[in-house]
Every structure is written in structure tokens, then in C-alpha cells.
């Protein structure tokens, strides 16, 4: 059989070539920095996709694990704390830390029914923000932990000016995540997740250890989200304030997964492009354009594109579920059914 490039390959290849396009575009139109955000949320949503897409457990608090990763990265690296690790070891450590946090939340709650679990994760997302804000002795409250290190290659540390280096770093880490998740999907564990999603009782009678398998999905998602959090803290050189990891972020990740195609890696990549593109490219550029042309005003709530965010997310979810329940790029298993 001749090898044909799959959708994942095509998307990643296009993303790798994007900086070439930036070279010819005028500075105002350049996309690399914004697309870096797409990569970041794609990693986060790939994590969510493991728990919600593969294992069928709705997690509404994925941003909390992102926050845990970001703060873990901050505490491990910032000079005001005793650890002072470098970028790479700290980023690597966010993965087990995130997995552990997922384990702590998941172990007692995964026996719950799906919709109860959703509420627990939603509440967890709110509480992590509260705790981070209130434990200001450790977390610096709303100031966030900063400054945080960037990776070093060849002696000198990167700065915000090294746009293309950051771009390819994010890109490379996204590729790594895609391959890791793809291999998981096709492993024995991945099959077990699908099986649980389709029918828990049947899976149990086939000898799958349901609780343990669910817990691994939960912890894997948390680990990937924490990894994304560490990465975002590094590029911003700060953890930012706790409310940067609020329910909106969890919903953005959920939108990516639902709109793109629940359980489909290529779908998540496309979903990230569409949703984050809307959120941080179209809306931001529209705001800037309207301000430049004197249309936007602080006084009129309708004329600020940022105020339409919730409506767009909400409608995206409602319409996606109604019209394209399998998303823009359905997973292979659904394509095979049709």
C-alpha cells in the first residue's frame, strides 16, 4: 500500500512552514506569535481529549491542572524559592506533578456518574484558583510568580525577541504530544478507554479494570495540561494571576475538542486553529482594527469584540453538538461507521 499523508501530517507540515509566510507578510499581519497560542491550546486540548474524548469523562476543570503546572514550574524555577531548577528539568517535572494532582482529584471521584464528575471538576477548577489566590505566602497571590526562566541553547537564554525559536519550540513540543497521544490511542490502554466510553459494564465483564483505567486517563490529561501550563508560564516569564486559569480556559479547551471532533487528534488540531484563531487572532485583530478606525468605544458594550467571547463559545458548543456531533474531523472510528 502506498503511503498517503494523513490529516495530522498535513496540518503539522503546514504549521511548520508558517514562519516562511511571515517573512513575506507585513509586520502587522504576522501570525507566528498568535499561532504559538494555537499550539499551546492544542496541547491542552489534546490532554482534555484523552479524558473526554477517549475515556468519555467530561472534565470541566482542565484549566486547574494547567494552573498547577504553571505554578509548579514557577516554584521550581523562580529565584525566590530554594529549588531554582533550569527550564528543561522543571518542565519535565510538571508532567509527574500534574499526573499526581489528577490522581488526587480522580481517585476519590471517578466512581461518580458522568454528570456528577463534570460538576466536581468544575468546582475543582474554581477552588484551585481560590487556593492559589488565598495562599499568597507561597503563590504571591494575584501578582503571580516571576520572573521565570526561558530555555537556553548554546549558553544564552532566549528572550521574547526570539520569536521563531519559541515558535519552533512550541511546535516541536506539540508534535511530541501528538505522537505520544496517538500512540496511546492505539495501545492496549487506548482500546480500553474506548471500550469504557462505549459501555462500562460490558468492559468490566471483559476484564478491563474500569476504575484504574479511568484514573490513568484522568491523570494523563492532567499531566498534559500541567505541561502546557509550565510552557505558558515560561513564555510569559510569569505564572500570571490565578484568574488567568479560569473556567473560560476550560471551556475554550472543551470547545476545541467538541468543535474539532471529540476523540480525534486531527480534529483537535483543527479545532484549536478555529477556536483559538477566533479567540486570540480574529477578536484581537478586530479590536485593534476598530480602535484604529475609531469605531470601537469603551462606552458601548456591543462594539467591543472582546465582549462577544462567551456568546461565540456558547454558540459554538450548541451548534457543534446539534449539527456536527462528531466534529469537523470525526475520529476514524466514527468515519468507519458511516
Amino acid at each position: 500500500m502506498r503511503w498517503r499523508p494523513g490529516p495530522i501530517f498535513i496540518i503539522l507540515a503546514l504549521a511548520a512552514l508558517l514562519p516562511l509566510l511571515d517573512v513575506v507578510l507585513p509586520p502587522k499581519m504576522q501570525l507566528c506569535e498568535a499561532v504559538r497560542g494555537v499550539f499551546l491550546y492544542a496541547i491542552l486540548a489534546l490532554g482534555l481529549n484523552v479524558v473526554t474524548g477517549y475515556a468519555g469523562l467530561l472534565n470541566l476543570g482542565i484549566a486547574a491542572f494547567m494552573a498547577i503546572g504553571a505554578y509548579a514550574f514557577g516554584i521550581l524555577t523562580c529565584e525566590i524559592y530554594p529549588f531554582q531548577l533550569g527550564f528543561w528539568p522543571a518542565l519535565a517535572l510538571t508532567i509527574p506533578i500534574g499526573a499526581f494532582a489528577g490522581f488526587i482529584l480522580g481517585a476519590p471521584t471517578l466512581g461518580l456518574r458522568g454528570d456528577y464528575l463534570a460538576i466536581v471538576t468544575l468546582g475543582f477548577g474554581e477552588i484551585v484558583q481560590d487556593v492559589l489566590k488565598n495562599l499568597d505566602v507561597v503563590t504571591k497571590g494575584t501578582q503571580g510568580i516571576n520572573p521565570l526562566p526561558a530555555p537556553t541553547f548554546g549558553g544564552s537564554e532566549w528572550t521574547a525577541e526570539d520569536e521563531y525559536k519559541w515558535y519552533y519550540l512550541f511546535f516541536a513540543l506539540l508534535v511530541v504530544t501528538v505522537f505520544a497521544v496517538r500512540n496511546l490511542e492505539r495501545s492496549r490502554l487506548g482500546r480500553a478507554w474506548f471500550s469504557i466510553r462505549e459501555d462500562e459494564i460490558a468492559s468490566r465483564s471483559m476484564g478491563i479494570r474500569v476504575e484504574r483505567t479511568k484514573l490513568i486517563a484522568f491523570a494523563t490529561a492532567a499531566a498534559i495540561a500541567a505541561f502546557a501550563g509550565g510552557l505558558s508560564a515560561s513564555v510569559l516569564s510569569s505564572t500570571g494571576e490565578p484568574s488567568n486559569y479560569d473556567f473560560q480556559i476550560s471551556i475554550l479547551a472543551l470547545c476545541i475538542v467538541i468543535v474539532g471532533g471529540i476523540g480525534s487528534i486531527a480534529g483537535v488540531l483543527v479545532g484549536a486553529l478555529v477556536m483559538v484563531g477566533l479567540n486570540s487572532i480574529v477578536l484581537v485583530k478586530a479590536t485593534a482594527w476598530m480602535a484604529a478606525n475609531g469605531i470601537g468605544s469603551q462606552g458601548n458594550v456591543l462594539l467591543s469584540p472582546n465582549n462577544w467571547k462567551f456568546l461565540i463559545f456558547g454558540l459554538a458548543l450548541i451548534l457543534a453538538v446539534r449539527l456536527k456531533p462528531n466534529g469537523l474531523i470525526p475520529p476514524r472510528i466514527e468515519r468507519a461507521k458511516q
Partner: peptide, 15 residues
């Protein structure tokens, strides 16, 4: 799907 639709409605109402 139903739950996701309800979350969508929640966001629309909030907006």
C-alpha cells in the same frame, strides 16, 4: 452532548 449543549446555553446567557 446534552450537557455540553447546556454549558453552551449557560455561556450565551452569561454574555
Amino acid at each position: 452532548s446534552l450537557l455540553v449543549s447546556a454549558i453552551g446555553c449557560s455561556f450565551v446567557c452569561m454574555n
